[in-house]
Design a protein around this nucleic acid. Structure first.
Lengths: 186, 186
DNA sequence: TCACAAAAAGAATCTCTGTTCTGCTTGTGT
DNA sequence: ACACAAGCAGAACAGAGATTCTTTTTGTGA
């Protein structure tokens, strides 16, 4: 009993594959991206990809999870600053941080979620989590800046957070629709 | 030179095929629906389908166009009543009219639009048109109920319409995510 | 440095799907 | 009522795509 790729190395390969997949998905969509495309984009081979992901669905799932997690991370960063921004400012910051490629991937993920239970669970879970973070942020603003009572602030924050979330998602959609995917090299 | 299907009959067949396609798409998604699925759902045959639509992309396009057109029609009906509703009421009415199957199809269409220029154009065009209708409605409300000057009302209506649109689209997304597609019969 | 199992490459496979082709059937103008 | 082109069914085809299998390479613990 001896050799196996170190876990760090293994994770690196997974990331390499996932990143290539993100580029392909952003360019051609989840379903129109073939394994061959990902092979070309990553510079790896079929065997290698299947050694790291059980199948394409597994890869798509990992990519979707990663994308949403990153978006949540960015949101967390902008939301939990010392001086809580007002809701308009919060929304403006979130919108400013939107990346077109990720926006396309996100919207594709929504489409996939409508018929794919695994993806649906990921999207719903992440959306709920992000909304909760927004609510925290708005609550902090209500308490610190608007001098609300903490008890009641949390309640009033909920519908505001809901709206910020909705407006952010709509903006994600518009960004996705406005940006054209870059062509693949000839 | 003699016989050809009357135009009405031809349109009927197209509709029959399109409706079957809508059911399939709502259940399995745009890309995971095969022509065989649509054949089974419609009770027609490959030959017949290809006699009425040039290919699958053409059918998808027609379905997307039809779905968006219907949504615009519904919006038009709710928007252009004698007593213009205030924006909250307008939004509530739009949301109440959402059908889960159509919501799923709509979200799938967004996903497809991110990488398919033909679909993208349809979505963008229809979105703009719907936003304009909302703006008309909000303008009417500002003038008739809030007693604004018509000249300035149109301008102030724009951002309100934009927000109503965004909140409506977000709700479409939530409906699509919450509703599970019904299983196909065993 | 060595031994060897895991990992990677790339060919091979096998299924699935869009589209076309071949006749039979049906609706329409006369 | 009839003739005949269009409509339609269903088999056939071609191609693409996911996944697996075989062989070569590579990284790790001793």
């Amino acid at each position: 009993m001896v050799p196996r790729l170190t876990d760090a190395r293994k994770e690196l390969r997974r990331a390499q594959i996932a990143e290539a997949a993100v580029r392909c998905f952003g360019r051609n969509g989840l379903e129109r991206t073939s394994i061959a495309d990902i092979i070309a984009e990553s510079g790896l081979s079929a065997g290698s990809i299947y050694a790291h992901y059980r199948n394409k669905a597994d890869l798509v799932q990992a990519v979707a999870r990663g994308d949403l997690a990153e978006r949540a991370r960015v949101l967390g960063g902008h939301a939990s600053s010392d001086a809580p921004p007002d809701p308009d400012e919060l929304l403006a910051r979130l919108i400013a941080a939107i990346d077109p490629v990720k926006a396309r991937l996100g919207v594709q993920t929504w489409g996939e979620a409508t018929t794919n239970p695994a993806i649906r669970d990921i999207v719903v879970d992440m959306t709920d989590r992000m909304r909760a973070m927004l609510q925290d942020c708005v609550t902090a603003w209500l308490v610190k800046v608007e001098c609300h009572e903490p008890a009641e602030a949390r309640e009033s924050a909920a519908p505001i957070a809901h709206r910020v979330m909705a407006l952010y998602q709509a903006e994600l959609l518009y960004t996705a629709l406005e940006s054209l995917p870059e062509e693949t090299a000839p």
